[in-house]
Amino acid sequence: MGSSAKKKKEKKKDFQKAKLKVGKTKPKAANATDTGFKAKAIALKQQSLSATAPTVEAQCAHQLSLLNHKSDTQRRDSLAYLTTVISTHPPGSPLPQPASVIISTVQRLVLDGSNSVRQQMLKLVQSLPKADVASHTDSLLLHTRAGMTHLSTDIRTFSLEMLEWLLSVAGDEVVSCAGGWVKTLKCFLSLLGWQAQFGSKWSATKSFGKTVGDSKVQVKQMTTLATFLRAGMSQPKQMAAIGSGEVSFPLSQTEHHVLSERSNTFAHLNLFGAARDEEAEMYEDREDRQRVFHELAEPAIAAGLEQATKGGGELGRAGAQLRKAMKEGMADFHGIDNT
């Protein structure tokens, strides 16, 4: 309610039109924003003027950089592109980008929030040559373990798939890399809830992050654990062909003296890294692994299995399989222990 003439005039002022005059610049609106800016230098990204299409290498590099993109679909599409490029390239020729680059950028996506991205990522790493994967097992395993303990159930189940694939590709490296044996075992125990550390409980409490359809996940976990145990504790298949031949008669135990084919052969000496504790130690021998398994996990797994087999059904079958794997692996260990 404008009561005075003065106020009315003031109110009117807002809606008055500014007069335009010839030869004068148009007056600026009250709400005009100055969009000019100052810069010491302006760098224009050179647009490619070449008539030829960018090389596959450049495109791959571009797609790799897109893996940080905020949109799920973009990430998935980039992964898909990379997968097709890698899977279609001729076997003898080198990859468009080195595998170390691809793996180090891709491995983060184990923990990605979107399921389709994760699945696509698994396809991508599956398309990589096995030898390349084997040399990057430790970092891949680290990410996989991070996924296994993740809060999100989807990521947890996915990382089991990832681990199975890893075991199938580079089982030996997985179980013998630094922290690969003990830490993964502990991871499994905590996943299955088989750690009987906290005294006797009245009843098994339901864990926070687990959903109702839990038994399927548990079955999967148990089968993966069985594969893991087999990889770690089964009898080595065959030594390299050098030792078996009788051609090299005067030489004995040649396989120990030839150059190793693995990369970073002396990693177990840990010459340059920080000191490792029991968990992070490398267990390269089967016997070592058996001993550690006996100390840390065997009783817990046995107790857990008892409950699982009681449940019967799918869970029971998986349990039986796991028990079999464990027995096979520990068969000769107990023999040694007894004698």
């Binding site: 373990r145 991070a146 303990t149 993740h150 809060l151 502990k186 991871c187 905590s190 996943l191 809830g193 750690q195 906290f198 409490t205 864990s207 926070f208 992050g209």
Partner: peptide
Amino acid sequence: YYEDHQQQYMQ
């Protein structure tokens, strides 16, 4: 919630 805490600690 000890086990959940343990899991997160491992994470």
